[in-house]
């Protein structure tokens, strides 16, 4: 770990985006919960916009594909462009022929892994229940669709508070569902666009600052 420091902006000129993988490697620690909510919200926002433009859907295969932009936008890039991976096999969980719930599932997994970054196999991070529920539902959407359940049923034994009651998550089927849950996490839902954009903008700015600092030390 760490011997291969990524080189944001190595191509020259000001850098306008960083991948989530670069961010994780530079900090060498996981993202925090607020950043997870924000990346989730912002990425689903851009995926929604892309869907409206009828752009092909693609699953997130690694954190290298999730790009955080200077202005706080978060986008999902094609795998081969960023990760240096060979193009995904056509058809199978590949590019354009996947569903919205599959994209959400893959994003949930990537975000969980970013929260889990650096932890050992036998360790598990304690997440706040709402974030754990969000990720759980994102990552399980395909199953939820298949079984046509209504959300929880017997799965979440530990949640008996009234507060938790109103936060109950039903199956996530769309980017909009994810965004609504992220907005509901805030005291004022209408602040979600500005708030989450600001969190991602700060994530970009602070990571670039760290990169500049580390480069100077080198």
């Amino acid at each position: 770990e760490g011997e291969e420091t990524p080189e944001p902006g190595a191509a020259g000129g000001p850098q306008d985006s960083l991948s989530l993988e670069e961010i994780l490697r530079l900090y060498n620690q996981p993202i925090n919960e607020e950043q997870a909510w924000a990346v989730c919200y912002q990425c689903c926002g851009s995926l929604r916009a892309a869907a409206a433009r009828r752009q092909p859907r693609r699953r997130a295969r690694s954190a290298a594909q999730v790009r955080v932009w200077r202005d706080g936008a978060v986008t999902l890039a094609p795998a081969a462009a960023d990760a240096g991976e060979p193009p995904p096999a056509a058809g199978k969980l590949g590019y354009s022929h996947c569903t919205e719930t599959e994209v959400i599932e893959s994003l949930g997994i990537i975000i969980y892994k970013a929260l889990d970054y650096g932890l050992k196999e036998n360790e598990e991070r304690e997440l706040s229940p709402p974030l754990e529920q969000l990720i759980d539902h994102m990552a399980n959407t395909v199953e939820a669709d298949g079984s046509n359940d209504e959300g929880y049923e017997a799965a979440d034994e530990g949640l008996e508070d009234e507060d938790d009651e109103k936060r109950k998550v039903s199956a996530i089927r769309s980017y909009r569902d994810v965004m609504k849950l992220c907005a509901a996490h805030l005291p004022t839902e209408s602040e979600a666009p500005n708030h989450y954009q600001a969190v991602c903008r700060a994530l970009f700015a602070e990571t670039m600052e760290l990169h500049t600092f580390l480069t100077k030390i080198k």
Partner: peptide, 24 residues
């Protein structure tokens, strides 16, 4: 700055980490 604080517990077979691992 940028420091995230979080608690670590032993991985649980029924926990979210195990569920995510099974998917990947």
């Amino acid at each position: 700055k940028g420091k995230s604080l979080y608690k670590i517990k032993p991985r649980h077979d029924s926990g979210i980490k195990a569920k995510i691992s099974m998917k990947t």
